[in-house]
């Protein structure tokens, strides 16, 4: 195992991490604004991955161009879920919210299971077998595409929250829901938009992840946990934190996979989570509560 080999592992981990980060961004946005922990996050991810899979196999649209479609679909799903169901549980205690989203997760996973069956599916693009070489580094083409697209979507999201009126209004709701209501913002609608945006992030991440891994219905709880690890590492509610957390987890998975054993990689992620929870509970980039 020489230095070049490590460089390759590290860069693959970094790139995958960006896609993880985009998924976790959705979780972070939803929690940051509504204080709802979305335990159905991985299930939305799996829905997005299957949607991208269908678009590719039935209509021949490859995941990157399909991304706006899938993100749009997930936006609608998130918007409606918040409007019709989750909104009435915003003031409920944590364990009730947890159970609500858990039952939602059970329903979603099993609908996916019913429609697609338990087998793992994947897609093969022409680009799947190509790679870029950058000096001694060899980077998979799809991984680079996925990572850059994920980064681009994250930038868009940041710009949305920074520069648009709706984005500013959502930040106002996050800072002070009562104040937001006082100045005449339609908080319920903004919450629904926020949930939609969170779901759309997952939709985009799902498209991109399909380029890198196989999908099967029981991935959902793994991705939910992965999302939690990432946002807590980076700091719940912090956008940059989610990306940073994603990269850290991507790196730790890649390195522990080659250095120790692939089956131990989740132990390192959980180990990281425990460390961060204890040493810096607000996350690496999170603000003190």
């Amino acid at each position: 195992m020489d230095a070049t080999f490590f460089m390759n592992v590290i860069s693959a981990g970094l790139l995958t991490g960006l896609v993880y980060g985009l998924m976790a961004l959705g979780l972070s946005v939803i929690f940051g604004v509504m204080r709802v922990v979305n335990f159905a996050h991985g299930d939305m991810m799996v829905v997005a991955m299957y949607a991208a899979f269908l678009l590719y196999t039935k209509l021949g649209i490859s995941p990157v161009p399909a991304l706006p479609l899938v993100a749009g679909l997930l936006f609608v799903m998130g918007y409606l879920l918040q409007r019709l169901l989750i909104n009435r549980f915003l003031g409920a205690t944590e364990h009730i919210q947890f159970l609500l989203l858990l039952s939602l997760a059970i329903i979603i996973t099993n609908i996916v299971l019913m429609v697609f069956g338990p087998d793992a599916r994947n897609i093969q693009l022409d680009a799947s077998f190509e790679s870029y070489s950058l000096g001694p580094l060899i980077l998979d083409k799809v991984r680079v595409i996925a990572a850059f697209t994920a980064g681009g979507v994250a930038m868009l999201l940041w710009a949305f929250f920074r520069y648009t009126t709706t984005g500013t209004a959502i930040r106002a709701c996050a800072d002070n829901p009562v104040g937001a209501r006082v100045v005449g913002l339609d908080v319920e609608k903004l919450y629904a938009v926020t949930f939609g945006i969170g779901a759309a992030c997952v939709g985009a991440a799902g498209c991109l992840l399909l380029l890198l891994v196989d999908v099967h219905p029981h991935l959902s709880s793994d991705y939910t946990l992965l999302g939690f690890i990432i946002v807590i590492l980076g700091g719940l509610g912090s956008l940059g934190g989610a990306l940073l957390g994603g990269i850290l987890v991507g790196l730790s998975e890649a390195l522990s996979g080659v250095l120790i054993s692939p089956s131990l990689k989740s132990m390192f992620s959980f180990g990281l989570l425990i460390l961060v929870l204890l040493l810096r509970p607000q996350g690496i980039l999170g603000k003190k509560p």
Partner: peptide, 11 residues
């Protein structure tokens, strides 16, 4: 079907 109905009942 069983699991979906289970989830709906919980909800």
């Amino acid at each position: 079907v069983k699991q979906i109905a289970y989830g709906i009942c919980l909800m």
